[in-house]
């Protein structure tokens, strides 16, 4: 019976109702947000997509030779050149008259930091590529070092908290504004907590002719210090507190936001994560940083107009709801 069941599971895997470009058997940690995010992206992109992947967790946990978890053509070159590789693939396909979508993927290190120049080039040349950044807010692959995407006051191995420091001293880089300045046709943010919204944005980014950018907030249980079971919970709280604004931009203008009806205090988000645990110790410094993070979230809510009014608690076009029979809206 067990053998039959195994065989039938194997067959079943081949006949799933959605194409999934990222297969089981990868080596991501339990509850990895990025693994989920990458799979959702491939799900929306479909099989006719070529992926260029920057160095990082995603690359390492999916492709330890001789195996690969990818079911779509996939290429990893280096840390800082995924946008250029994707540009080359796109140009190559164009030259050959072949039709396939091109998606570049990178972490926040590969995107906010070392690959920013190549990304800027790709966006400026308006290659028909969707660049997806899985933002887990630090260099996780190398052991949780701070990146320019690490939030203010978060503790990492290179921005630890101590008697003289409250974690990272600097702010999270406002990458979105940099992307917006490129005046590309489409840019958006999404999170693994809202898979329908994420998939919709992937499709939109791929439908649009020209460069598209998608920033996907992807909790890292290991680096953020939360249980793997809470990955979605944490990602959801990032939205509900205003810490991570979910929005869409066309030609640099914000055209849609996922509004928050019931804004929750940032501490609801922070207290689930060990990287912010030093902020919950009784000290004036901790208090200041907590208030600072609250002010940053409030600032997001204000500048992006995140406060919602519709009866849906998150005004999410239903992105957060489920329905009997799996009838997700996207």
């Amino acid at each position: 019976m067990a053998a039959d069941e195994k065989k039938s599971l194997f067959e079943l895997r081949r006949t799933q109702p959605a194409f999934r470009g990222l297969e089981a058997g990868h080596l991501a940690c339990q509850g990895c947000g990025q693994a989920l995010g990458a799979r959702l992206v491939t799900e929306a992109a479909g099989p006719d997509v070529i992926v260029a992947n920057a160095t990082g967790c995603l690359e390492v946990f999916t492709t330890a030779w001789p195996r690969t978890a990818w079911r779509v053509p996939w290429m990893h070159s280096l840390f800082e050149n995924a946008p250029a590789i994707a540009s080359g693939i796109e140009a190559g396909l164009k030259a050959q008259g072949r039709l396939a979508k091109v998606v570049a993927m990178g972490g926040d290190g590969g995107t906010f930091d070392i690959g920013l120049q190549a990304l800027s080039g790709m966006l400026e040349r308006n290659h028909n590529v969707l660049y997806v950044c899985f933002d887990n807010e630090a260099y996780m692959n190398t052991g949780i070092q701070r990146s320019s995407s690490t939030p203010h006051a978060a503790a990492t191995t290179t921005s630890p908290s101590g008697t003289e420091r409250m974690g990272k001293r600097h702010l999270k880089k406002d990458l979105l504004s940099i992307i917006a300045a490129h005046h590309i046709p489409y840019a958006a943010t999404a999170t693994v907590a809202y898979p329908s919204d994420l998939r919709k944005k992937v499709r939109r980014g791929l439908e649009i002719e020209g460069a598209a950018f998608l920033l996907v907030h992807s909790p890292c249980p290991l680096g953020w210090g939360h249980d793997g079971a809470l990955t979605i919970e944490v990602a959801r709280l990032a939205v509900e507190t205003g810490v991570f604004p979910v929005l869409e931009m066309e030609r640099g203008d914000v055209v849609a936001v996922m509004q928050i009806r019931k804004v929750r205090p940032v501490s609801d988000y922070l207290k689930l994560q060990a990287r912010f645990s030093h902020l919950f110790k009784e000290s004036p410094e901790a208090r200041v940083e907590l208030e600072h993070l609250q002010a940053l979230a409030d600032h997001h809510i204000e500048v992006y107009g995140l406060r919602g009014t519709s009866p849906d608690p998150r005004d999410s076009e239903g992105a957060d709801t489920v329905r009997r029979g799996g009838l997700r809206w996207a």
Partner: peptide, 22 residues
């Protein structure tokens, strides 16, 4: 003809292009 923002990208673009079969 892809005029890029650095040699790093120039080499990367031709790498991607060649890998795509061009």
């Amino acid at each position: 003809m892809v005029s890029v923002e650095s040699e790093f990208s120039a080499a990367s673009v031709v790498l991607g292009a060649a890998a795509s079969g061009s």
